[in-house]
Nucleic acid binder design. Structure first.
Lengths: 381, 381
DNA sequence: TCGGTTTAGTCCATAATCTGTACATAATCC
DNA sequence: GGATTATGTACAGATTATGGACTAAACCGA
């Protein structure tokens, strides 16, 4: 409901650039004539817009030229991966990560730096991250790519440029400075992982991405857009109430999902998720029971989530991805019996295909989406 | 992600008409000069747009003329309530309702027709509703108002023009025919009641409206817009899990909120909500305990809802409005202790100010919003 | 092989809309 | 009463899209 500004000739053109670029992005290479048909603009206008987009490096001629049919064949116009790129960044509990992705969503560069960020000093970590940014940006430029924006994923709640609360890092109200001299945004790890799944994983446009980490977050994507709630705090699946009088949770509540299905509850005394997988594979009873309990709790919490959020499908990611074979049964059963006849069938339950990279990729993808949505502004047209 | 069309000259003007009308709507009467300032358009353009809007009957000169300051005083332009109106309709369990609202959101006409619609025949009810529509439309036209669109609130889930499932009416997959020869939409009662609260009640732009009826629905409003989820089924608060192994619910699940806090659970053997209020006022223990239990369950379910949906505040409506004095304590306590330190303070808990009319008013308001958002299309400019 | 047909892309005159400066108007200030 | 200040309109100019004519490049059929 912000005060909206009037449309002038330049914003009309800006919008039409976005419409044409969006059409190319949404459904692959097209000829100018096809674009005119799709957008309702005339061939003349599309030609003019396309030539601007070519100049800005957003698209290029070439790609698949349709042939074999009658008439003069058109020249296909497709997204160009050669000139414009964006930077995805991630601060997680035990590593820093960066990646460079070009406009075609091809991953061009990836760097991970192991670190122990639990209860760390923000200044140190941010300094280290800044080094990583310089390194990757320089390398991308060597490859001829112009990095035009960056996004950062953090394991906590974000408001604007302030990291409000990242319990596992031990950070509160940390103002993250612009790490690059470019458009820069910060967002929650689960939200960005959900977007990673959208653009680099299954490419479905409607789903709830469940991010199992030390905490449990979720990012809801409806029609290709993340739902963030009023203050950007939506999707805290980890603190949905599973048992009203259950054990205390570190959040102050009782019987939260995190108590039953967080990483600590799943691992118990085990050192790592891969160790847990090993034991599950060898059929160890204690491990199987832990997974069963977690799956049951997840089924209860997801039932509430489905009633409230109405997701298209449910994607399990993070540590739940390797554990999916053992979680799927109990979770699906819980959903199936509890949702009952409120809806035709419960949402499909699937595993994330991109695993641990989801958040960094989503971060880079977020900026790419901005370029597609506002090419005039992002590319200086 | 629908294929978006290019912007042409006529859509530029259509957009600017909407921008100017939106500014008048959002912040009361303004002079043309002020509108130019706010929209970023020139005075010339605003003058031209305003004269079109006057011709269409959307706005009128007059209203508060600012005086007493230096310079030539401007002529205020304000929404006109004299010419354009919309129709709100509601099918509920025990009544049909209609109302006519003008562009200034003044309620011009209201009709309620008691009926017993439980397990009824859709054909009968829709016929009766059609009569009500003819009656109210004719009466509005006598008052010089042109009804330009209608919306219908129903107690069930809606997809497009089909009422999928209204358990208390006993309707499934009922295709509702266009009741008027005008733009016409159908939506869920809780969603429209939430919009009623937005436009005719507190006028806050961010809240979760909880509609206590025989079932319990909720409508989430974020930044003045209803969140509907993927299939339009979001907000089914009544079936959020409160106790995982609780009593069976008619939905097929167990321990749903509706079992503890639905109208039937609250009333027990009592005949009506007003009877319950009487007993609460006289301090009857059984009544107080029923409210306490319901409030406790509501607190648990709302905790999950707050974590997932992140509402700005929580508005209790429907039968919860008269019961608010007795529910507020247990609900607020549950929210306060359970939300813990995940967020600064829990969302404010308030009572709806418009009671039973929320849904019909919201329905009429929905069409008014469409007029404000797309005046060119809705008014034929 | 060659003209006919079909479709793609460009050129250019025209149309729609907004901008910006100039100007008439109407109030206050001194 | 004249200076000042702000509103609202008029008109020429700028920007962008349209639409029909035209050129280009393929296939089709004789």
């Amino acid at each position: 409901m912000a005060a909206s500004r009037g449309v002038r000739h330049d914003s009309m053109r800006a919008r039409n650039l976005a419409v044409v670029l969006g059409a190319i992005h949404r459904s692959g290479p097209h000829t100018r004539a096809a674009l005119a048909e799709m957008t309702g603009l005339t061939k003349t206008t599309v030609s003019s817009l396309v030539s601007d987009l070519i100049e800005a490096g957003a698209v290029a001629e070439g790609g698949a030229v349709r042939g074999g049919e009658r008439g003069r064949p058109g020249v296909a116009v497709s997204l160009s991966g050669d000139r414009v790129a964006t930077l995805g960044l991630e601060i997680n509990i035990d590593y820093l990560a960066a990646c460079v992705v070009d406009l075609t969503r091809e991953v061009r560069l990836r760097r991970t730096r192991p670190a122990d960020n639990r209860n760390s000093d923000p200044v140190d970590i941010l300094g280290s991250l800044r080094d990583l940014v310089k390194e990757t940006t320089a390398e991308a430029e060597l490859a001829g790519l112009r990095v035009i924006g960056a996004a950062l994923a953090v394991p906590g709640t974000v408001e604007g440029e302030v990291l409000r609360n990242a319990p596992h890092l031990g950070w509160r109200d940390v103002r993250v400075p612009d790490l690059v001299d470019l458009p820069f945004v910060i967002d929650n790890e689960a939200n960005l992982a959900a977007l990673g799944e959208l653009w680099f994983g299954s490419r479905e446009t409607d789903f709830l991405y469940v991010s199992g980490e030390i905490g449990i977050g979720a990012g809801l994507v409806v029609d290709g857009t993340v739902f963030r709630g009023t203050f950007g705090l939506a999707g805290e699946l980890g603190h949905v109430v599973v048992v009203p009088d259950g054990p205390a949770c570190r959040c102050g509540g009782r019987g939260c999902l995190e108590v039953y299905a967080g990483q600590d509850a799943l691992l118990g005394a085990l050192p790592s998720v891969s160790e847990l997988v090993t034991r599950l594979e060898s059929g160890e009873r204690r491990a199987l029971e832990a997974c069963g309990r977690a799956g049951h709790a997840l089924g209860v919490a997801l039932t509430s989530a489905v009633h409230l959020l109405d997701p298209g499908r449910i994607v399990l990611g993070g540590i739940y991805a390797p554990l999916f074979p053992w979680l799927e049964g109990p979770v699906a059963e819980g959903l199936g019996t509890r949702l009952g006849h409120m809806r035709g069938t419960p949402p499909a339950l699937v595993v994330s295909g991109i695993g641990a990279d989801a958040a960094v990729l989503g971060a880079a993808g977020l900026i790419i989406q901005q370029v597609i949505a506002e090419p005039a502004q992002m590319l200086g047209l």
